[in-house]
Simulated assay, not measured.
Amino acid sequence: MVELPGISTDLFNDTPENVATTVRLLILLTVLSLAPAFLVLMTSFTRIIIVLSFVRNGLATQQMPPNQVLVGLALFLTFFIMGPVLSDVNQEAVTPFLQGELSQEEAMEKASMPIKEFMAKHTRQKDLALFMNYTGESRPEKIEDIPLTTLVPAFAISELKTAFQMGFMIFVPFLVIDMVVASVLMAMGMMMLPPVMISLPFKILLFVLVDGWYLIVKSLLESY
């Protein structure tokens, strides 16, 4: 059996150092497997993908743009918005840890600070108080005192509320077009013709004329 340096595949040996290294490797693999959840709940990805989905549903274009395009655009916008935060994490935690200046625990603590500051900035006090009251925690004096187990779900539901508010504002103009088209068809006695079929070209025309994608992305960027 080929052994990697410093890593033992035997979890039941009597060497504490080897056991500790193996446990750390398992923890690292677990964290990597949960990375998509961290990306969704601890960044701007949730708000962006929901707003983009509202745009597609408002247009009633079914699968246009495709899911791959929406997710790809949401990912790149997330990296763009989170760029300063990721840069701080790299400078304050990752680089010093790789250079041996910080221990693993110190690096994790320093890496969490920029992320906590970002989430706390966009978390409603009401949502944060909900989880803190449930766990019986006292009101923190600093952002550093807020545990991630409390801040992450509070940030997530705050992002959901903001995303649905933006989605409602996006949906209203398209709803007005549907109502106008339905009223015209009813007045003409064409009640058997689906209004969505007639309103779709007008929705796309309106969206293109106002440069909809530019306005949507601009609104998302300015919301942070």
Rank of each mutant, 00 (worst) to 15 (best):
T149L: 08
F54A: 09
F164I: 08
I143Y: 05
Y134N: 12
L32I: 15
L220G: 11
L148S: 11
K142S: 14
T43V: 01
P140M: 10
F155I: 02
A163G: 01
L39F: 15
V176S: 08
P173T: 09
L70S: 09
L86N: 08
L4Y: 00
T162H: 12
V94H: 00
V2Y: 00
L41M: 12
F155A: 12
T61F: 02
P195C: 01
K203Y: 06
P140I: 04
L185T: 07
S219D: 14
K161W: 14
P66V: 07
S112M: 14
F118T: 00
P84E: 02
Q125E: 15
I49N: 03
V51S: 05
I146E: 12
E3Y: 04
E3G: 09
Y224E: 06
F131A: 07
T162I: 07
F54C: 07
D211P: 07
N67A: 14
T21Q: 11
T150I: 15
I115A: 12
L98Q: 11
L39A: 09
L175A: 13
N18Y: 10
L128K: 12
V19N: 10
L75K: 02
Q91E: 15
I146P: 04
A154F: 05
T123Y: 07
I143D: 05
F131P: 10
D88Y: 00
I177Q: 10
R124K: 15
V196T: 13
Q62M: 03
T22W: 12
A163Q: 07
F168G: 09
V23I: 15
P195A: 01
V94L: 14
S223C: 01
F76R: 01
S8I: 08
L205R: 03
L220E: 03
S103R: 05
L205G: 03
L11R: 14
V176F: 10
P5F: 11
L98K: 07
M166T: 03
L75C: 06
R24L: 15
F207G: 05
